[in-house]
Amino acid sequence: MQSLNARYLLCPLPVIRVQDRVKLMQQGEVLEVVCTDPGTVHDIPAWCRINGHRVIESKYVDEEYTFTLEVGSRFADEP
């Protein structure tokens, strides 16, 4: 599992960091990202839904939001 620290970044920067990391990963790999911006609760799952990745787990502990994502297929809906 890979991990990414997106603490103290405000949206959409956490999403951008996740997006840039996922680009370097393979389908099926797992990424754990830790954020502090409450906006990530909406944005990271939304970004995953539209780009075909899966949020396996999300939790909120000590004012930190942790999302565990599984990378989906990049080419799923291309023509």
Partner: peptide
């Protein structure tokens, strides 16, 4: 904080069913 905190660009992409690339 009572206002929706959604990112509108992501929301639009989801309504349209398209991928969204956010570029720094």
């Amino acid at each position: 904080q009572a206002r929706p905190k959604r990112n509108n660009a992501l929301w639009v992409a989801e309504q349209l069913g398209i991928k969204l690339h956010i570029i720094d």
